[in-house]
């Protein structure tokens, strides 16, 4: 079984606005506004229009001994909210 992959919309399909410590994300495809905290905006940028696995993301962000379960849970939440796809 291959590893779960995640993909965010292309950068042109989301609009981001910094609101102090939070970031408002307007998802053009659904018209839904999300209010997110770091590191979600960084994840969206890294995964924009690219299928990545957890391993890929750990490499990308140089997460040594990172909280892999926490990252997986965050990605699942983003997928449920409709911000990213999961396959």
């Amino acid at each position: 079984m291959s590893a779960t992959r995640y993909r965010a919309p292309p950068a042109a399909d989301v609009v981001l606005a910094d609101l102090d410590e939070l970031v408002a994300v307007f998802h053009r495809a659904s018209g839904i506004t999300h209010l997110v905290a770091p590191p979600v905006p960084d994840l969206l940028a890294a995964m924009a229009a690219r299928w990545l696995t957890l391993d890929d993301l750990e490499r990308e962000f140089e997460l040594v001994d990172g909280d892999r379960d926490g990252l997986a849970a965050m990605l699942d939440e983003m997928a449920i909210a409709g911000l990213i796809e999961r396959a």
Binding site: V15, A17, D18, L19, D20, E21, L22, A24, G31, T33
Partner: peptide
């Protein structure tokens, strides 16, 4: 009041935020 809190409270105080779509998002942020 932080910008995030103000934004959330104003989306709740708007009757047509959702209908305006991206125009509403840009206006409110």
């Amino acid at each position: 009041v932080g910008a995030g809190e103000a934004f959330v409270r104003l989306t709740q105080a708007s009757t047509n935020y959702v209908i305006l779509g991206e125009r509403g998002f840009a206006a409110l942020t």
